[in-house]
Amino acid sequence: MKFAVIVFPGSNCDKDLYFAVKDSIHAEVEMIDYRETSLDGFDAVLIPGGFSYGDYLRSGAIAAHAPIIKTIKKMAILGKPILGICNGFQILTEIGLLPGALMRNRQNKFICETVDLRVENSQTIFTSEYDYDEIINIPVAHGEGNYYCDIATLKQINDNNQIVFRYASDINGSVDNIAGIINKEGNVLGMMPHPERALEEIIGSDDGLKMFQSILKSHMNRVNL
């Protein structure tokens, strides 16, 4: 399985993601510049955290118009796994692959801590190794992670089981404590917390490991069908 890590000007979790794939699941991975227009040969796309374009205008708003985005949208239509973390989640909402938007934290402060998340859907290609309702310990680091969507959209994503992670308690004002959502088709996941920073117990938690293992395993199951 081959992963692409998309690098925008201002991305800063790109290396973390690269090594998460390389060292935790030993899959192939390459860093891909935002000016590229081809992702031929790649099986999955990872959009890292950071501050693309310095968060100018709105988080993710300018990255949403980078050359690689058209290709990412094509990958999404092909059903390839696409995972956006933190700024990656913001970009996925800006390009319309996921509903809603990420707004400034209600308390107007940057949060940098490790929090409890509840796994609300363990039947996705990203979370199959977790148990439903499992509490996992994952770091967050964001100033604009306050998930917002209107009531109609909230009902829709609830009804379709698209809410994958919730914060165990309200940390930033997100609607319904939403920390991560998936698209209806089940191949595009966005989340504010950083599973790539929770891969070794020695630095606090290895609860992020199962996410990368889930992606790999789901891929292998598809390939071996």
Binding site: R58, A61, I62, H65, G100, A101, D150
Partner: peptide, 9 residues
């Protein structure tokens, strides 16, 4: 619609 404003919010 596509850049300066985010119609969601």
């Amino acid at each position: 619609d596509s850049l300066l404003a985010n119609p969601n919010m």
